[in-house]
Design a protein around this nucleic acid. Structure first.
Lengths: 104, 104
DNA sequence: TGCACCTATGTCAGTCCTGACATAGACTCT
DNA sequence: AGAGTCTATGTCAGGACTGACATAGGTGCA
């Protein structure tokens, strides 16, 4: 298990704002990780709200179920690029995207 | 010159909202490209506002001047990941990031 | 129980992105 | 003119990400 994955797992479950001090992260790193987690959570929320499975979403994304699962779990092996493109593919507007990002 | 680069160049100069019909883009593709351009413009705006050169920014990013130039020009060879991380490195808050994304 | 569906996690070859480097044009001084 | 600074653009080896696949655990239902 890689270090950044451990960080991710540890980061989950901690309130936003306390992650940074607990782990040895710079401000940007912390902000970046928190951003990823927000997008990951937003993706799952949108998918389940639409009532479709990871497999179905993967099909429209021309990706695979396993990658969707990794996306939603905040796995460090998925890029912000893919997260955002997935959200857009689910019909997320810029305004909604902004809301996800600036959420507490 | 590659196709997506041509698209980018053509996209620049066109008002948001008219890009899609002109080129043969799906809704998500158009939204994705527009998002990239917003971030690229936001990055340049923030850097110049701080009065630092591309070279100086590259140093804090542990990247290179050429990559910063590509970032700001919206070159398709740079990822959304790098764009966002650069903005964060410039001290952009989530709220400001959201504003950049949802800007018209 | 057996079956179907959903999700999580690991692995891997191929593709994409990265920093570094080279080079060129524009601008400002002296 | 020449030197220094800033930016744009092309190239490339190496590292990061990708889709695909395998596999396992969970849940619901006949």
């Amino acid at each position: 298990m890689r270090a950044d994955k451990r960080k991710r797992l540890e980061a989950r479950g901690w309130k936003v704002g306390t992650v940074k001090e607990f782990l040895g992260l710079t401000d940007e790193e912390a902000a970046y990780i928190e951003l990823r987690l927000k997008l990951a959570d937003g993706l799952r929320a949108r998918r389940t709200a639409k009532g479709i499975s990871q497999t179905a979403l993967a099909k429209t994304l021309e990706s695979s179920q396993s990658r969707v699962a990794k996306m939603e779990s905040g796995d460090p092996s998925v890029s912000l690029d893919l997260l955002v493109r997935s959200l857009l593919a689910l019909g997320t507007s810029n305004r909604e995207l902004a809301r996800i990002i600036s959420a507490r």
